[in-house]
Design a binder for these strands. Structure first.
Length: 109
DNA sequence: CAGCTGACTGTTT
DNA sequence: GAAACAGCCAGCT
C-alpha cells in the first residue's frame, strides 16, 4: 500500500505551501519528506499543476540552488524577482547563501 | 496497451 | 576538481 502515490501531487503542494517566507527548498528535500527521495523529478513535475494551488513554486529550486524551473514561469526572471522580493538573494538564476535560506521540511517540520 | 518525457540527484569517469 | 552518465517514478500521449 502506497498512499503517497495517490496524493503525491497533493503532498507536494502541501509541503510547498508550508515553506516559510524568505526560505527555499529543493525538490529532493520534498521528495525525501514524502518518502520518495528518488522521485525528485516527480516533485518538479507536480509543480506543473502548482498554478492555481497557491503553491509558491518559485521557492522550490534544485539541489544546487539553481532556478531550473524558471522556464516554466510566465516571464524569464519572474522567479528570481519573487525570491529577491522575499529577501532571498539571487544571482543569475542561482540563489546566494543557499545554505542559509535552505528549508528542509523533514527538519523544520 | 506500451512508451516517452521530465521544474532532479547521486555516482562514476 | 569538473563533466558526463545512469537511475528513478509517475503522469501524459
Amino acid at each position: 500500500m502506497k498512499p503517497e502515490t495517490l496524493n503525491f501531487f497533493e503532498k507536494v503542494y502541501q509541503v510547498a505551501k508550508q515553506i516559510p517566507y524568505g526560505r527555499v527548498t529543493s525538490y529532493g528535500a520534498i521528495a525525501k519528506y514524502l518518502g520518495a527521495a528518488k522521485s525528485a523529478r516527480m516533485v518538479g513535475y507536480a509543480m506543473n499543476g502548482s498554478v492555481g494551488k497557491d503553491v509558491p513554486a518559485h521557492r522550490v529550486v534544485n539541489r544546487k540552488g539553481l532556478l531550473t524551473g524558471k522556464h516554466h514561469f510566465e516571464g524569464t526572471n519572474l522567479m528570481q524577482q519573487l525570491l529577491e522580493s522575499e529577501g532571498v538573494k539571487v544571482k543569475d538564476n542561482q540563489i546566494q547563501d543557499f545554505n542559509t535560506v535552505f528549508w528542509e521540511p523533514s527538519k523544520e517540520l
